[in-house]
């Protein structure tokens, strides 16, 4: 039997009478780039919140690295090696870019000097070195997204959950983020990726799950997904491939 790094088993999330995620199951293998797509309101971000401990799933189990993590807090999940970025970026505005990334690095070291070295390394890998001493709040959105990425990379995660990391970016910026993601995978991390940009998703993902109205609609390779009539009807709309 293959060991999955992340296994989502029959996860549901109810808000009162509202069912945001309903009975979703899938597994992510090590070193995969895994896409999670679906129209607005499909429950993608809610699922991320359930996985990373921001709110617990109402039903079902989340297994990460052979541990059940349903009831763990986000900081505990981070220490197990799973960390997320935010669709609406959350820079620590009054800190500098370098200090933001150091906060991430402190999850694996207690030393200021080491944290700074790790932070510099990760700033370099996303191309933010020249902004290191700028205030994080003053960066334009494209660079804030890269900062989010550098910050989570500094925690040296086994698995990254990226919530629309390319949202609001132009083609060049998207391209450079995708390059970073590829190189991160190269170094051995696993990536789960919420994205709207179909081109980005199909070009980079090994496997894709489609959510619609909180339910899993389809799962497969990018090719299978783009040819799946249900997905085309629900998500791509009217049969035109994006």
């Amino acid at each position: 039997m293959i060991q999955h790094l992340l296994h989502i088993s029959h996860v549901s999330k109810h808000f009162g009478g509202n069912v945001a995620v309903s009975d979703v199951s899938f597994s992510v293998d090590e070193k995969q780039i895994f896409g999670l797509i679906g129209p607005n309101g499909a429950g993608k971000t809610t699922l991320f919140n359930c996985i990373t401990g921001f709110f617990p799933a109402t039903y079902g189990d989340v297994i990460f690295d052979n541990k059940k993590i349903n009831s763990l807090r986000p900081d505990e999940v981070c220490h197990l090696g799973m960390v997320r970025t935010w669709q609406r970026v959350k820079p620590l505005g009054s800190l500098t870019v370098l200090e933001n990334v150091m906060v991430g690095a402190f999850s694996i070291t207690n030393s200021i000097r080491e944290a700074e070295a790790i932070a510099q390394e990760n700033l370099q890998s996303v191309g933010l070195t020249e902004y290191a001493n700028k205030s994080a709040g003053s960066l334009p959105i494209g660079l804030k997204k890269k900062l989010e990425l550098a910050r989570v990379l500094a925690t040296h995660p086994k698995m990254l959950l990226l919530d629309e990391i390319c949202g609001g970016l132009n083609h060049t910026e998207t391209g450079s983020i995708l390059d970073i993601i590829r190189s991160v995978r190269q170094k051995g991390a696993t990536i789960v990726f919420i994205e709207h940009d179909m081109k980005a998703v199909t070009s980079i993902c090994d496997r894709i799950v489609v959510l619609n109205s909180g339910e899993k609609l389809a799962e497969g390779t990018p090719e299978e997904i783009t040819n799946n009539p249900d997905v085309i009807a629900a998500y791509l709309g009217g049969g035109h491939n994006a």
Binding site: T52, F54, R73, P74, D75, E76, C78, H79, V83, R84, W86, K90, P91, L92, G93, S94, L95, E99, M102, V103, G104, F106, S107, N110, I112, A115, R151, V152, T155
Partner: peptide, 25 residues
């Protein structure tokens, strides 16, 4: 100038971000 100081400021700036980066709020 210590880890704790960085963490406190991270908590001040954004608790969700702080928590997701491994800070026990």
């Amino acid at each position: 100038k210590s880890k704790t100081g960085f963490y406190l400021q991270a908590i001040r700036e954004d608790q969700d971000a702080a928590s997701s980066l491994g800070i026990n709020l």
